[in-house]
Nucleic acid binder design. Sequence first.
RNA 1: GGGUAGGUGGUCGAGUGGUUAAUGGCACCAGACUGUAAAUCUGGCGACGAGAGUCUACGUUGGUUCGAAUCCAACCCUGCCCA
Length: 374
Amino acid sequence: MTQPITYELLHVDKNSGARRGVIHTPHGDIQTPVFMPVGTQGTVKAMTTDELKDMVHAQIILANTYHLFLRPGHKLIKEAGGLHKFMNWDRAILTDSGGFQVFSLGALRKITEEGVEFRSHLDGSKQFISPEVSIEIQEALGSDIMMAFDECCPYPSSYEYTKKSMERTTRWAARCKEAQTTENQGLFGIIQGGFFEDLRRISANDLKQMDFPGYAIGGISVGEPKEEFLKMLRFTTPLMPENKPRYLMGVGTPDYLIEAAISGIDMCDCVLPTRIARHGTAMTSHGKLVVRNATYERDFTPIDDECDCYTCKNYTRAYIRHLLNAKEILGVRLLSIHNLRFLTKLMESVRIEIERDNLLNFRDEFYKKYGYIK
RNA sequence: GGGUAGGUGGUCGAGUGGUUAAUGGCACCAGACUGUAAAUCUGGCGACGAGAGUCUACGUUGGUUCGAAUCCAACCCUGCCCA
């Protein structure tokens, strides 16, 4: 069968080693490195799909297996014609497997070799997700890229626990691959191993044997110090195949995204831009800006004077602060548009700078203005 | 004019003799947020002080008491009812 997800390497930055490429999917090409907005429940919170295309220029978005399984149910979405049709999005979709919920719903789940029993955060009911169930759900959703069902370990975790967990994740990955029945979806393996280099190496090697069309790094950016993050990122990325997409899960902040690209990552996703937008904070070229704060009460300038987004072209800090203060939905919407566009724009710049072999200089310039965050 | 209920910190509103600078909500101020249990959560919120602490406060004035937002008196003001 022809592989539905393929990676084409266009250029490698001679100075940083960063990759400029294209991922071909059944729902269009993705220019990489790419930032993928997260739309857990079949919606990037507060955004219409037209806004995601026209204002944010999103090439691909995420959705979540666990959440859509609980509500409205994957069968309903299949009945609707799949998630693309259900949510009116004709570009690529990547679905997370529910693996992150094994981590984030720590208190509400029980892990066994067979799978994970969750207490639904919605109604407390018992739910069970195994590698096979996760794939069944993701196939029903019809995403372009499915993720293997994994466990994302908390930070810190002991060597013993991390090792057991990683080995189980590897066995689960094999079961996911075995369970897949569709030919128009690509299943990515997830490298785990916490903050232990030998475990990362084992995980990467074992998963490579299974020949997935793409690989992800999971289990970092879970609250560790930045040095730890960078160390693990720089150690793990070179272990990933060069001819396939490399996806760093759950990142993030502008500085992390640039570092990821430099180390050779092609894809990143994060809830941060939309979440902090809802909480009143903007990402800007000069660092983060808490628009809620009283300092901006009479600031009639845009969120970011260097931004080309709809929000920055049309609205002021003072107005957005007022909307947030008055709890008007528009404030959250405008900030979400801005934050998402800020990151997709950042990645556009990253792609251009890679082509010019100039990403390292770009990073230095960016940090000068943005502030290097430890 | 008579009766009645009441006047508490930005606001609404608890508190009816001491451990009360005074519960709580809201407003306000700040912080956190990284494969979304998140339009959420945490903290602050009389003044001065880095702090220990000091001072000023529960309509006003006076009183009772070791001690008063809490009890008493007069006055001022507000709501409601009657004339």
